[in-house]
Amino acid sequence: MKKRLLLLLISFILTACSGLSENKDAKKNVEIFQINPAGEGQTYTLHFVPGKAHNHPTFAIWLETAEGDFIQTLYVTQSLATGWFGHGQLDAGRWKDEPGISIRRATLPYWLHKSGILKNGEGDMPVPENPAADGFTGATPRGEFYLTLKSDIKPELPYRFMLEINQTWDWNPYWHNNKYPDDFDYKSSSQPALVYSVMIDSHDPSELYYLNPIGHSHYGGKNGKLYTDLSTLTTALDIIREVSVRMGDGS
């Protein structure tokens, strides 16, 4: 009996230690970034859990009023902010298998229009010599991450916390490669960029806000409208498993 109890105890200890090791390794894989630490406004901690379709997406985070007026960009992935992508554009209809400059108006059209970079699909897209959102950019995280963000001013409550995300060449039966054969911008996007939002009505750090999809952008970046019908999107809805934001630096 004592021998059996001893074996059970050893088994329990080994299992617990294994679990601790796995949790420790899991935490190592979670990336932590800090953006605009010198900002004098509100601090936010965003937690991003990737979904099963996550594969190096481009995204932007910003604030806007409850009425939808743009306040400030908090973060945008470096590729879009500089126009320098992992697969650079060679010429119309062709892509390089190496980094280079690429003009992609369909990547995040809602943010591009909200921030004033584009108007009715027209405008100067960011390039290395003239980047966008300087000081609010970073490399695309590889998986789950925490992002500590700081605004320049503390917005008046209530307001919206926004995120737009897109994954290049993410085709599905509706948004297929031949749907708009003459639209090069569309071919760099596939399924349109997905827009997430949550209304912030308190700066209490105990409040946890979950962002939810509210619509998608124009497939070719021709305007800044929000299209609320998500029935044609498939894998685009699985880029994110869960995304939340809390006030403060998470400490």
Rank of each mutant, 00 (worst) to 15 (best):
V49A: 09
E122G: 02
G138M: 05
L147E: 05
F85W: 15
L211Y: 05
K187F: 15
H47K: 14
V30S: 00
L233K: 06
N130R: 09
K3D: 14
D134T: 15
K3N: 13
H216Y: 01
P131I: 08
W84R: 14
N172K: 03
N120G: 07
E207F: 08
E40I: 08
I61Y: 07
L118S: 01
V245L: 03
N166L: 00
T45Q: 11
D182N: 15
T107C: 15
M199P: 05
H113D: 14
L211D: 06
E207C: 10
W62Q: 02
L9W: 03
Y196P: 01
Q72P: 08
A236G: 12
L230I: 10
I32L: 07
I13Q: 09
W175T: 00
E164S: 02
V198M: 05
K114Q: 15
P99L: 00
V127P: 04
W175P: 02
T58Q: 13
S79L: 04
A132N: 09
D25N: 11
K2N: 10
A53Y: 02
N223P: 01
L163T: 02
G143R: 09
V195Q: 01
E22L: 12
L112T: 10
G121E: 05
I71T: 03
P126N: 08
I71C: 07
Y186E: 07
L90I: 15
G250C: 09
L74M: 06
T137V: 12
T77F: 05
S21C: 11
D152G: 07
I153R: 12
L14P: 08
P173A: 03
F85K: 03
F184M: 12
K154H: 10
D97L: 10
L7A: 13
D69S: 11
M125S: 06
Q89W: 14
G19S: 12
G39D: 01
R104F: 13
S151H: 06
D183H: 10
V198C: 08
E144Q: 13
L7P: 02
T228I: 05
S11K: 08
L118W: 00
I32Q: 07
H176T: 02
S190M: 07
F161K: 00
I239E: 03
H216R: 03
L108K: 06
E129A: 15
P37G: 01
E31W: 03
R160N: 11
Y174D: 09
H218Y: 03
D182G: 09
I61R: 07
R104D: 04
H218F: 02
G68A: 06
Q78F: 05
E122I: 12
R104H: 09
Y209C: 02
V127C: 11
L157A: 06
N29T: 10
K24M: 08
L163G: 05
A53V: 03
F161D: 00
K154I: 11
F33C: 06
E164W: 01
T73S: 15
P99K: 04
W62C: 00
Q89I: 10
K27V: 07
T65N: 02
